[in-house]
Design a protein around this nucleic acid. Sequence first.
RNA 1: GGGCCCAUAGCUCAGUGGUAGAGUGCCUCCUUUGCAAGGAGGAUGCCCGGGGUUCGAAUCCCCGUGGGUCCA
Length: 924
Amino acid sequence: MSDLTAEYELDYFYENGFTRSECTSCGVHFWSRDEERETCGEPPCEQYDFIGDPGFNESYTLEEMREAYLSFFEEHGHERIEPYPVAANRWRDDVLLTQASIYDFQPLVTSGKTPPPANPLTISQPCIRMQDIDNVGKTGRHTMAFEMMAHHAFNAKEEAGDQYAYEGEVYWKSETVAYCDELFESMGANLDEITYIEDPWVGGGNAGPAIEVIYKGAELATLVFMKYEQDPDGEYELKDGNTYSEMDTYIVDTGYGLERWTWMSQGTPTVYEAIYPESIDFLKQNAGIDLSEDEQALVQRAATLAGGMDIDEAEDMETARGDIAAELGVERARLEALMEPLETIYAIADHARTLAYMFGDGIVPSNVGTGYLARMVLRRMKRLTDTVGVDAPLDELVDMQAERLGYENRDTVRDIVRTEVEKYRETLDRGSRQVQRLAEEYAERGEPIPLDRVIELYDSHGIQPDMVEEIAEETGADVEIPDDFYSQVADRHGGETDEEDIDEKETERVADLPDTDKLFYEDPERASFEAVVLDVLDRGEGYDVVLDQTMFYPEGGGQPADTGTLATDDTTVEVEDVQEESGIVLHRTDEDPGKGEFVRGHVDMTRRKRLMAHHTATHIIGHATRTVLGGHIRQAGAQKGTDSSRLDVAHYDRISRAEIKRIERVANDYVRDNIPVTDEWIHRNDAQSEHGFDLFQGGIPPGEEIRLVHVDDDVQACAGTHVARTGDIGLIKVLTTERVQDGVERIQFAAGDAAVEATQATEDALYEAADTLDVEPSAVPETAERFFTEWKQRGKQIDELKEQLAEVRAAGGGDAETVEVGDTEAVVRRIDGDIDELRTTANALVADGKIAVVGSGQESVTFVVGIPEGVPVNAGALVSELAGRVGGGGGGPPDFAQGGGPDVDALDDALDAVPELLEQQLDA
RNA sequence: GGGCCCAUAGCUCAGUGGUAGAGUGCCUCCUUUGCAAGGAGGAUGCCCGGGGUUCGAAUCCCCGUGGGUCCA
């Protein structure tokens, strides 16, 4: 394993009198101005050294510290960049949440494909790390939500020339450490106390040397120097066991925790009291937590030691708590009773802030993706508030944070939280009823509740095991929840199949051809064009024709490919499909037009026009939906077609019929206003800074220049073809909505001719129904209702009549064959009716104290046998015997049985045998 | 994206191949009456939709629809 020791030999360290030492406690290497220093300074090697004794000259609020940092780097030649959303999946598809500022620039900027918005730059990026969820509140320093203040510089090796989106070196390691020192100095920190720990960094396919910056027991910054990428043939083997090679680009990636810096400046017992003091006060008061001075002092002393309460490092929380109690000379139980409510309060505030970021940035609760993570956080927060007795509504707590963070969609955020809390309440209600039933069942039996039932409750119904324990105890049932409960749940999911996406694109000789000139953007209404065949690739099932230029739109952005023809003087070939591979348009044809030929292309414009109408309509429907339902509406997928299209949007509730009507009306207003649809190619950084991330409704386009399509004030990055004016669409008709996932609604609609056709189809159905009912179309609902009611009444009437008929039959007469069996009269009879008639007849006979054997032989044979109480005949056995004679089977309880078989011809013989069979049973 | 669970009376649910049930609510009557309640009787239902297996399906199988939940 290569170590990167040489990487840390910075000129800056030598020029400023630093010494490299090895921590006597944990063995890491670190640099410090203090040559006597023995430990690295980070917990657990040392404890917090600033509680009650701030490490900076002045006390800063969160907002002040953010501003101080950003303006410091602005003054040092960095451009300030607006933060990105916490939902990282808005611009990349490999992660869900933003976990570091560098996420903003992966993968396109770090790989050098696109330029950074500024170079160098500074930013304070909101981040969410779900993996810290168990530490939140306990260590005094962990938060799920935090802002990573950072400065970044993107460098490319001189010899790489201009093949990347940025050139040359801005600055590298020494300058980065110098900035850090200078920032500390400007805050009035004692530079002698700072340690720079060597801690190589590996992550996300990249790696490089990195430095952890420790001051007074707290890690305040990480300076990462990204310069390697994962490479199976690479010469460097790093700590994750993979090999890496050097990249042409090398990037300064720093991270300064805004919350830690604020905390350091205030010296409060925990970070939480430093960053949202008013929330903590409010929650404490609401939960009725009021500490005496002694208790306050104890809490403060415990806080300096709380660094050891890290679930990732501590053996278990109880032991860690015990150690701290011992150190303070108090009982563990006393410390726990004092600390736990506080820790819960801290966690609640952090959960609220996390949710404010998530919902504020447009995440919608769901059973998938970021929406699921948000749901988990919200439910956990609800449980925490219940535990500690906070009765303020969650939407208010989240709103307090959303206000602080300056979100403008606070009404929507509150609405989402309320809806989601209500959903959780329903789940809990449903769950507790189920657990109640289960517990009663097992309490009655005196058995413990089996574990797999508890696992099922959790896995299928979202019921936490401690809820089962609680209810079981109340009900008097036993249940045991093992420590590895959650891993047993995980086992149930076993065999998680990661389907491998082996998508071997054939780039081969296509790569050498020039990019195809796309004519369809210039004039999307034009059908014909002329071109030269640059190459023809035989694909076995057809040919891929490469032209120098084309009017054919290749499939992309949810818009299907054009079809049409290519004609030479000799032949005409059909274009069946069109795909694009790295800038080259491949026309799939049935015949070979001939390489080097001059062709006239003709696009099927009927199809194209329908697709264009649907594509523009998709933008309009999206915009209308956002107008009607709120700014959180975001495209979650789309597919255009010639007859209809669909748009999936993220929304936290079902879309009502009334809302659909409003969406339809708003959409058609845009059509009626006949607004011009315009497009422009602009630099992605300009597009992003002007329009934000809502641009990327349909995915993230590659490249520096991106195409924007404007429809009124709706702007989207889009490569598709559109109508010239919204009026060209003619009409937009919403067809259906369905819920494709929790939190995702699919809107299906038709545009233009297709909308007229769809409306006609609906009308046809209505007219047909009206015709059948012989009423006006407008009377159909009323008439259908009347018919349905009448139909139900008749059903009841028929039942009554059958009953009467059965009584009449039972009273005698007809072709009944009556035999005496022992002391009882038996009636054997063929009634060609349905099973209900046979049953009611048999029941009526039994009520008269007679044995009833009735059979029906319409399409198949059915028997019903009824036996009065006290008569020693087994109905089941008799039916089974009779049914056997008609080639079927049957059975039932001893007093009433049914059966039958397919052989209708054998029915009468079977009935004739009944007296004999009855005698046999009596004799037996 | 994947796994699992659920759908029966207005509501909450039982019913694992053989005559659709309970509690609650509803209606009528009685008792009592300040309210609450008590007694007797009654009506509850395309057992989510569509196919299949079977003599027979609420029940088993398949496909939908709607809802829930866990995981990535």
